[in-house]
Every structure is written in structure tokens, then in C-alpha cells.
Design a protein around this nucleic acid. Sequence first.
DNA 1: TGCTTATTTAGCGGTTGTACGAAATATCTG
DNA 2: CAGATATTTCGTACAACCGCTAAATAAGCA
Lengths: 108, 108
Amino acid sequence: MAKYYCMVQRDSRPRVDAYESVFGALAHAARRRVLLTIYFNGGSMTAGEIAAIFERAWPTTTRHLQVLEAAGLLTHEKQGRMRIYRIQRKRLELVKDWLAHFSRNGKE
Amino acid sequence: MAKYYCMVQRDSRPRVDAYESVFGALAHAARRRVLLTIYFNGGSMTAGEIAAIFERAWPTTTRHLQVLEAAGLLTHEKQGRMRIYRIQRKRLELVKDWLAHFSRNGKE
DNA sequence: TGCTTATTTAGCGGTTGTACGAAATATCTG
DNA sequence: CAGATATTTCGTACAACCGCTAAATAAGCA
């Protein structure tokens, strides 16, 4: 009866949850597009600018923005009655970190 | 009335669909764990070995394997009555490719 | 104050995803 | 062939997700 590496991460729970929320957020095409759109428009946009670009109803976009923010991929600040969403590129590195598991040098 | 980059990818549909399936597959913790587990066990494992490690019922794991395979992250071959799943590391580079959009040099 | 603009919250159908147990398929073994 | 092993397919129940409309909140403006 052979033994296998199980890849359960018992500790570092915050990191596990972080993967969960980040990968979850990136799982939807609209949310990936939101990130790209904000990024290519200089890193920040108001909710209205974002919502105007997408076909969905505004509340739908709001929801996506919230998912992205919960994942730490966006932050927002108020400016008057507008909310400015700013991309957190650093957070995307979590994905890169996860991918790095598969690039141990020494393996083909 | 300002104009914004919209980030709609009208062409290259296969690539868009590929993102969809790959990010979708990675959105579930169990599937991410399957990939890591197979990778750290040498790149391939039988369905039974994989199913034995996870708490879920076997049919559930089968489904996850199918999702991963549909995304191109795994392939399988039959060997007798066993099915050997093999990781396709190359496919993970799609994720890296997508991330690369956010690392234009010249930007802070 | 009352009207407009900006944006979110609430609530509700519809679709999709997840997990399970039972049954089916396929292969090996005696 | 009969039985055991390996794995998937099927059918179902439940939860999560998505998108919508209507209503609420909040800020700016006359």
C-alpha cells in the first residue's frame, strides 16, 4: 500500500482562504475583464465608468466589484458621491506564487 | 464624455474559452489540490490513488478530474482497468500569460 | 428643501456547480 | 463464467452564483 503526498495545507489558513477568494474572483470572465479594463485605464476608475463599459445592469457590476474587492484585487475610496476603484496588482502575485509550485527546477 | 479601453476580445475566441475553462477549473480548492498532488507524486497518478487521498466520494473526484481534463490541465490514458491521469503543466502557462498583461514594464 | 446624480442593497427567479448513493461498464483473475 | 477490482455514468438534492428590477442611501446642486 503506497503512500502519496497529500498536499493538504493544514496551517497558513489565511493563505489558503486567499487562494480561494482570488481564484474564485478570477473564475468569471466579466471580473477578469474588469481588472484588465481598470489596469489599462491607468489603474483606477469610478464605479460608473466601469459599469458604463459593461453590458450588464449596474447592480450586477457592483456585485462583481465587491467580489474582486473581497478577494483583495481591488480597493475603493470615496470621492464625493463617486467611488473610485483601484486595482491591487500586488494581490495578483498570489496566483503567480501558486503557479510557482509547479516550476521546481530540476524537474523536466 | 470620456472614452475608456474596453478590453473586449472580439477575436481569438479559442483563447478566451481556454481562459474560461482553465480559470474555472482552478476556482475549486479540491481541483487545485488534485493538480498539486499529482505534480508532487511525479506527474501522474491513477484515478484510484487520487480518489483515495480525497475525502469526497469517488464519483465526486471523478467529476473534478473531468473538469480538469476539459480544461486541458490533465490528460488520461487507460492501462488495463486503471486510468492514469497525467498533469499538463504547459497548460498552466495560460494563467501566466494572462497575468502577464499586468506586468507591462514602464508601469509602476 | 427638493431634484438630480452616483452607487449600493434587497429580493427574486434561473442556471450552474457540487456532492452523494446506486447502478453501469470494463478489466482482471480463478 | 463468476466474482472481484477500478472507475465512470446516472439521477437527485442542495447550495452557490448570476443577472435583473425596484428600492434605498448618499452627495451635490438649485
